[in-house]
Design a protein around this nucleic acid. Structure first.
Lengths: 112, 112
DNA sequence: CCTCTATACCTAGATCATTTACATATCATT
DNA sequence: AATGATATGTAAATGATCTAGGTATAGAGG
């Protein structure tokens, strides 16, 4: 694959899921993904920030500047209603996909 | 993503799994994937054949010409021992990955 | 004061699997 | 003879992700 860490397409879904809990800035989104996958997924900045800009352009996310707990400026992202619908459909697609692949990988018993 | 059908990287794994049941020619591998994912995954020719050539170069697959049941010539692919190891590690990676992502998507309850 | 780490943002260029789209040919059925 | 399924293949475009850098602030330890 283009990368060795992420299966392409999952980053978008994870970002949308992260901000579904409330506004987050980019760095925190990366941290959220790392923590909520038990460190299994390390999101690179070169993938994360372009992905955020993509999603903002697609209007799945709104952005605004704010201040962090530690007094630093950061760009916060909020899920739009369009983004929430998108998240829903991406989760569905993910579930259907993984179910199908896992079945082929583990349960298939027929020979060609 | 680059494609709309496959999460990048899964095709290789599915091919290796398909030929783990015995020698298959390319067209049959495509059919195997479609059938064993309940039609959820449609493998395109432009992805399948280059993938087979890639894996043959990496020596995960051996290839030889043979004759199908219907008397037609076809190139058959056989899993090498190296390919079998690869399949094993890719399945492991797939399982760990999907577990991590599914957890983040469905079970995460912490806020940022 | 200095350095190091973590935080926080950004982009250019390369990688490369997959898609789109096409070309070729045989075989069976209509 | 026309069509659809079988069977293989390639060329060009797409586009998400990685590599590899850059800037800057805050806090801790020396």
């Amino acid at each position: 694959m283009a990368g060795s860490d992420l299966y392409m397409g999952t980053l978008d879904t994870l970002i949308l899921k992260a901000v579904s809990w409330g506004p987050l800035h980019g760095y925190a989104i990366g941290r959220w993904i790392r923590q909520n996958t038990d460190g299994a997924l390390q999101v690179k900045e070169g993938a994360l920030y372009p992905a955020l800009h993509r999603q903002e352009k697609k209007e799945w996310l709104d952005e605004h500047w704010g201040t962090t707990d530690t007094g630093r400026e950061a760009k916060y992202y909020t899920l739009t209603s369009s983004g929430r619908e998108r998240l829903k459909s991406e989760i569905l697609r993910w579930q259907q996909y993984t179910t199908a692949v896992s079945a082929a990988l583990n349960l298939a018993t027929t020979k060609a």
